[in-house]
């Protein structure tokens, strides 16, 4: 474990907590893409299948359990409890356009052609693009609530910090996973446009409005 990865995990945790707080306090899922949350749930389910078979550390297990349960809870809140506030008309990104390419790529490009390894690879590829429905929805509505933009900033920062973690592990632990690194770079690059808007607008106290 290194500081980059620890802070990255805490950013990821903060993002998920921020999202749950937004939903619970505003009693609304307005502006949230249920599709992205479904994809994140799928990412955790396919990545943490080794939750009970491969013990790494108490920290690792606790975080996996929290990420799994919170992502499933978020999907539940969006599609059942606060369904009335779900803006389905703007959450129209076709998930199959992400699921099928990621599945095919995971079958072709992986470290080992075994079910667990292919599912892990699928989860890595899917995580890289899982935010697209959410970013697409914001581009359609033209704006995002401030707390939603904090959520996105924390979520985008987490994988950016993981890139630093991979650099660190490459130089100091001679540990390198090209699949995770390439997907992590793609994932972080997808947030760049949002990062620019967040820093130039939200941090100036303005609401996140996309140029019409």
């Amino acid at each position: 474990m290194n500081a980059f990865r620890l802070v990255g995990d805490l950013c990821h945790l903060a993002a998920i907590v921020l999202l749950l707080l937004k939903i619970w306090k505003s009693r609304s899922v307005a502006g949230l893409s249920g599709k992205s949350q479904i994809l994140f749930g799928l990412v955790f389910v396919t990545r943490y299948l080794d939750l009970v078979t491969n013990f790494v550390s108490p920290y690792n297990t606790i975080m996996k359990v929290f990420f799994l349960s919170s992502s499933i809870a978020t999907v539940y809140l969006i599609y059942t409890k606060f369904k009335a506030t779900y803006d389905g008309n703007h959450d129209t990104f076709r998930m199959e356009f992400l699921l099928i390419p990621c599945a095919l790529l995971a079958i072709v490009v992986n470290h080992e052609f075994s079910p667990m390894e292919i599912l892990w690879t699928f989860s890595i590829y899917l995580e890289a693009v899982a935010i697209l429905p959410q970013l697409f929805m914001i581009s359609k509505t033209g704006e995002a609530e401030t707390i939603t933009s904090h959520y996105l900033f924390a979520l985008g920062s987490y994988r950016g910090l993981y890139i630093m973690n991979w650099l660190y592990r490459y130089y100091y632990e001679n540990n390198f996973d090209v699949i995770a690194v390439v997907a992590g770079i793609v994932q972080t690059v997808l947030y760049c446009d949002f990062f620019y808007l967040y820093i130039t607008k939200v941090l100036q106290g303005k609401k996140l409005q996309l140029p019409a």
Binding site: H12, D50, M63, D177
Partner: peptide, 10 residues
């Protein structure tokens, strides 16, 4: 092979 064995990240 070490990549598949060492899955210690979240």
């Amino acid at each position: 092979k070490e990549n598949t064995a060492r899955k210690d990240e979240l």
